[in-house]
Every structure is written in C-alpha cells, then in structure tokens.
Nucleic acid binder design. Sequence first.
DNA 1: CCCAAACTTGAGGATGACCTCAACTTATCA
DNA 2: TGATAAGTTGAGGTCATCCTCAAGTTTGGG
Lengths: 207, 207
Amino acid sequence: MSKPLRRDAQHNRDKLIAAAAAVFTERGIDAPLEEIARQAGVSIGTLYNRFPSRAALFDAVFPDRLANSLMFGDQALACEDPWDGFVLFVTRLCELQAGDRSLNDLITRRFPDATAVAEACGNGLDKATQVIDRAQRAGALRPDFTFADLVTLTWANARIVAATQDTAPTAWRRHLAFLLDGLRATAAHPVDEPPLTPEQLDAAMRA
Amino acid sequence: MSKPLRRDAQHNRDKLIAAAAAVFTERGIDAPLEEIARQAGVSIGTLYNRFPSRAALFDAVFPDRLANSLMFGDQALACEDPWDGFVLFVTRLCELQAGDRSLNDLITRRFPDATAVAEACGNGLDKATQVIDRAQRAGALRPDFTFADLVTLTWANARIVAATQDTAPTAWRRHLAFLLDGLRATAAHPVDEPPLTPEQLDAAMRA
DNA sequence: CCCAAACTTGAGGATGACCTCAACTTATCA
DNA sequence: TGATAAGTTGAGGTCATCCTCAAGTTTGGG
C-alpha cells in the first residue's frame, strides 16, 4: 500500500480525474494534457506529479466507467432469444463507441502501459464469447463468426462513428443493420478469409 | 495558360512529384513535407515554391493514379451477372484502400482545396450508381442500398485496413464477406435508420 | 558572353505538444 | 507553534512540423 496523499493533493487528484474524463470524452484520447491541467485549475507540473504518463491517467479514469458501461453482457445473456441477445450486445457496444470519443478509441486501441484499462476491457468483453456461443448453438448466428470478428466490427464502427458523429450521429446503425443481416446463419455463404489469430488481433490493437 | 517552367525547375518538380507519391504511399497523406523534399533531393523552400500547399501537391500526384485505379467501374458493368459485378466493384474499391495508405485516406476524406483530386474521385465513382442500380434491378442487391451506403462501407473498411495492414493485410476481406452476405436481397430485413443525405455525406467527408 | 529573370537554398521564426526541475508554498504532527 | 516532509508551480528545454524570405545560384535569350 502506498501512503495516503495529503488532503490538498488528494483534492487536486480528484479534480484532475474529473477534468481528464471531460476532456477525453470531448476531444478523444490524444487530447493535450495541458488542456486537462488547465481545466482542472492546476499546473501541468502537478498533473505530472500525480500521473507520470498518459497511461497512468487512463488507468485512473477509465476502469470504473468501463466496468459500468460494459455490463450489458449479462443483459444480453438474459434475453430469451439468443439472436436478440447477440444483437443487443453488439448494438450496446457500438452505442458506447458512438457516445464517447474516448471509449471509441479505447475499445479499438490498446495502450500497453494502461494495464487497468486492459483488464477492465477484458472483463467486460469476456461475456462476448458466451453471447456468441449461445447464438450459434441456437442456429441463429452464422457458425464461422468469432470473437476476433467482433473486434473487427468495432474497428469498422469506430471509423463510421468518427466520420458521422457531428452530422449524423446515428448513421452507424445502418451499417450495423446491413452487417447483422449478413451474420444470420440463414444468410451465410462460405468465406475464404480465415479469422484473425489471437496474435494478429493483439498486434492490430497496438496500432 | 501559365508560362512553362525553366528546365531545372521542371526537373525538380518531377522529382518532387515522384517523391511525394512514394512517401504518401508509405506513410500516408499526413507525411511531413520535409521528408518529401529530402527524398526528392531538393530543399523545403523549393517544394513550397512549386506547391504552395499540401493540397496542391495532392492535385499534382493523385488525379492520374486515381483515374487509372478507378477503372473497374466498366469492368463491373461488363460482368454478365449484375451481383458479381457489384461484388467486383466493391472488392476492387476495398483492394485499392488496402494497397495504398494514401488512397485509403483519399477515398475516405475530402480536402476542400484539392479540387482535381475531388474531381477524379467523382469521375471514378460515378459508375457506382449504375453498378448499384443494375444489381438492384436484377433483384440481387437489397433495394434499400444507396451510394451513401457504399461510402460508409469504405469508411468501415478504412479503419479495418489501417488496423491490420501490417500484420494481416487481407483481414478486411472477411468483414466484407459478412457484409456482402447482408447486402443480398434475400438476406434483407427492414432497416430503420435512413441513408445519409447528400449534405450529411459531404459534411462527413470533411472530417 | 552577359545579365535579368527565374529559381534554389536553408537558417530561422511560429506553433503546439511533451516533460523536467529548482524554487516556492502548504499541510501535518509533535 | 514551528519544522519538515509533501506538494505545487510555471518558465523553459526538447522535439517535430509548418512556412517564409533575403541572399545566393542558374538558365537562356539577346
């Protein structure tokens, strides 16, 4: 355990986290740190005292929010119809991306030093495999769909969201609807391209 | 008509265009201009003499390449089967994105000052409407698919390509296959979200 | 061959982001 | 109420990119 912070320091830390959340949401995950310090009413030096790196700030800001936001896994599994559960899961995930620039980045990229964020993402998405399995066992979801394909879907959605969020913030729903029609088992035609391996997936997230 | 360039100036201009093509292809459209000057063996001042802006450089580099690259419109219309033609058109478009970072950017974004680029894109894609129409009239392509949806598809593909080109350069084909299965008329379920209006499309390209 | 116009050059100012650290301020505890 | 450890500050160094311009070089017509 580390020593507790002095009262003023704790207060500044709280203000920094609040400001970071706001700035990241609004300007994305590459927002300048000086902007966060400014908005927290604190000097840039203080920000670096509390959070030696951007990743450390991520680890302070996002795990809670991700844990809250990614709770739809259980909701999806609770759906009576497995296909509806799958659709709900994917739709919620995309909604998350659409509602918050920073989550859109985080779901899509990995930051090797933000270990707490990685863990929160992992926890949130580990239900995905169950949701997929269940829909496939019910014969609703095409059997060749994998977890890696879900990640690919979020990449696709990320760019659509980025392009349209200012002028047509729900446009992504249309692409998703087309895609979901192609994910039904009844629509499936054989696909040559194999799914990404876990290693490829991992490498792609670091881009 | 503007006066012809002096011989040395023309030569430098050629070297700059060649270097720009190489650098843009390799590093994308935001590559530093100084890198281009360096690779052309010319000073940064000369680059700015010839091309007062990045967009001017685009206009010199890309229209020819785009015109050549986007010729698959006729090829698609020549396919006996209208659905195969549509698939060929979309696949070629995505291949173009996958093969060249700069084209991936250009197909996806608009640069208001690069008028020649915009025109070349427009010319290349004006066949798209015919390809879509033909596939729809044949009852193969779902009737609610529009040109705007094709652009959305290229946004989606752009991000997938960007994420995977170093480690799994054909991964985009899998997402495209799933999506195409959803674009068949036989797979279509009603979609609530309306297509982007031309204005929304235009606005989104400027992001 | 010469000179005026055309062209090239690269140092350097502007910007915006990163990160550090020596000097200052404040909380806490005895 | 000090004394001291903890915390804050912001000017300023670093870096990468953009863009300009005064001084020098080259071309080509007369």
